[in-house]
Structures are given as structure tokens and as C-alpha cells.
Amino acid sequence: MKLTINGKVHEFEVEAEMPLLWVLRDELGYTGTKFGCGIAQCGACTVHVDGLPARSCSTAIGDVDGSEITTIEGLGTPDKLAPIQEAWVEHQVAQCGYCQSGQIMSAAALLDSIPSPTDEEIDAVMSGNLCRCGTYPRIRAAIKTAAAKMEG
């Protein structure tokens, strides 16, 4: 099997049913993508598969063999943040931070398809991502700031 993750090619052999999440985390060491529920209810495991958001805990590796995957690590790095990550820092969004990889990946996908989302559009997309620390008001603000940054 083969995946291109954040531009890097990985070849490996696992069961076709293994969720993408556990290939990323345990087989390949991409631990920025988090396990929260295992049933696509919390969004902590969100990554992009060929540019589209996917809950990696419920995406069988056999179904995405050969795909290009972007994880949080591929969006930007501590030394070179992506504009959306800059917006997250600007608004001091993260608290425990555990859900934020998934939040940011969902928000990045939202901005890819809707560059200037309304509150309703933000609600519709982001309600799939749980946060137990209650960072939602700052996530909303950061998405708007990121939208402005990316347009400008």
C-alpha cells in the first residue's frame, strides 16, 4: 500500500480495514492527528484525503490506497505557520489543544470551498468537531480572521 502524506511517499502493508487514523498514528508516526471516538462523531481525527476533509478514524485504508493525505503537520510547521494557524495563534484559540488539529483541518477544508463563510456555513461544517474546553467562540473568530488573511 502507498500513501503520499504531506508530500512524502510511504509504502507499507496492513489490513485493508485498518482505519487511516491508526496507519498515520501507529504505523507511520503522524501523531498530530488525534483519536477521540472511533466512530466519526468528534472530528478530532480529521485529515484531508485528496484535498477533501475525512474522518480518518472511520476511513478504511483500503479505500484510500494511493491517495494524497494532508495532516495537521502538513498544513504548516512551528517555524512556518499556515495563515489559518496564525489566526489560531492570534485568537489564542487552543486550551487543552487536543481537538484543535481536527478543528483546524475542518476549518481549512471549509475555507478551501467557501473562502468567506457566513456564521451559518461555519456552524454547518464545524458542528462535526467537538471541543470539551469550549473554544468555539474563538474558533469562529479565528476562521473569520483566517478568511480575511487568505483573501488578502
Binding site: 501523531t31 488525534k34 483519536f35 498544513l75 512551528p78 505557520l81 489560531w88 489543544g97
Partner: peptide, 23 residues
Amino acid sequence: KSMPRLDMTAKVTGTAEFGIDVR
């Protein structure tokens, strides 16, 4: 004063190590 959190960059880049991330 409102100081930028020291853990913020790590937490928006997937580089903060939680217990579950220990390798």
C-alpha cells in the same frame, strides 16, 4: 497582562505531545 500562551504554536501544529502521542 495577556501573554501569548507558550503552548499555542505546538497545539496548532500537531506537535504538542499528549500522553497518547508518546512514541
